[in-house]
């Protein structure tokens, strides 16, 4: 089957900054595909190149077998793009905005009317359609933005951080809507910061850091590949660093403990990767070991590996840390 999206060896620099540095990936049709990575990883740049907003320095991009470089107009017909910033003219009404969008995609008057009515209905916007957009809430604006991106029934929908800044209810509705689109054969490519969002929605995920692909596969595969179970220990609610280091050395010496990381951001909690079929069974041993040196145990949490662990394993830092290192989280740098 022909790939919905094919990206081969994509390079894009802004000045001396390499935004994307040799990225390749393939997205099968009718699939939700997630791009995961910290700020500045090159996610948005990749999407912008795909949507013909940026010209790559090097590499090949295809949508449904059509080269983005050779026939950008045909590609624009196939794509719907919903940018991270809500791009609405607030002085227009919702319906006027959709009508403008319909004309930009050259829909006939009848098709536009039908399509607008249906999408307004579907996204529960009908009641507010003739009010000016400036009166809309953030969630409402995002839904209108989504409706605009879907007006011409794109085969591939590209979403940049579709739920950033949305309340939990709006996020849920967006997720359900994307699943529904996938059921109807639309390919969805989305970027996200939210690990759980990608984990829940995406059939496959590409983890990107500094413009390079560092892992690719189904979320399940990726997590299994990292392996191990996670135990998070807190000696005290907020442990002194020296004590945490002492405990780390102590516990690190145990045969089933593969790795110990001290998480300073969480009151020097100890983050252990353990090789045990049942991580719960390791807890008494860990407690005894601490007690032998006179250290208390405030709390224990167990977890399977998450996508964050995948990221950690590949880059040596958590997504959050990478975000902090890249600057203020949630803000994209723009040229």
């Amino acid at each position: 089957m022909e790939a919905a999206i094919r990206i081969e060896d994509l390079h894009k620099s802004y000045g001396s900054t390499k935004a994307v540095d040799g990225l390749s990936l393939t997205v099968a049709p009718a699939q939700i595909y997630g791009l995961l990575g910290p700020n500045g990883a090159g996610k948005t740049t990749t999407l912008r190149c795909l949507c013909t907003l940026e010209r790559p320095d090097r590499g090949r991009l295809e949508v449904a077998g059509i080269s983005v470089a050779d026939d950008s107009r045909a590609v624009r017909h196939l794509l719907g793009y919903v940018a991270q910033e809500i791009a609405l003219d607030k002085i227009l009404t919702g319906r006027e905005l959709l009508q403008l969008q319909a004309d930009l995609y050259h829909l006939s008057r009848a098709a536009a009317r039908e399509q607008i009515t249906q999408l307004l209905e579907l996204l529960d916007l009908t009641d507010r359609a003739d009010e000016r957009i400036k009166t809309y809430s953030g969630g409402l604006m995002k839904r209108l933005d989504l409706a605009a991106g879907l007006l011409h029934n794109p085969k591939v929908l590209v979403l940049d951080e579709p739920t950033v800044g949305l309340d939990i209810q709006s996020r849920l509705t967006v997720w359900n809507f994307l699943r529904e689109l996938r059921r109807r054969g639309v390919t969805v490519l989305l970027t996200s910061h939210y690990l759980e969002e990608i984990d829940m929605l995406a059939a496959r995920v590409a983890i990107i850091d500094r413009g390079r692909l560092i892992a690719e596969g189904t979320p399940e595969e990726l997590k299994q590949r990292v392996g191990g179970e996670r135990v998070t220990l807190r000696i005290r609610e907020f442990s002194p660093a020296a004590e945490a280091r002492e405990a780390a050395v102590l516990l690190g010496a145990l045969p089933f403990v593969k790795e110990v990381i001290i998480n300073e951001a969480q009151g020097n909690a100890l983050y252990l990767v353990v090789a045990a079929a049942d991580p719960l069974s390791t807890v008494p041993t860990l407690r005894e070991e601490l007690a032998r040196s006179g250290l208390p145990l405030f709390g224990v949490a167990l977890a399977r590996p998450s996508l964050d662990d995948v990221f950690l394993a590949a880059t040596g830092q958590t997504l959050q840390d990478a975000d902090l290192a890249a600057g203020s989280p949630g803000k994209k740098k723009r040229k």
Binding site: L107, S108, A111, Q118, L122, N153
Partner: peptide, 29 residues
């Protein structure tokens, strides 16, 4: 607003290619 993204009759999601208007480039322009 509830979960109204997903209508019960999900058949209402328009998916066929909507009809384009005037075919000529000038008309589209």
């Amino acid at each position: 607003m509830g979960n109204s993204f997903i209508p019960d009759n999900s058949a209402s999601l328009p998916l066929r290619q909507p009809q384009r208007a005037r075919t000529g480039s000038f008309g589209q322009f």
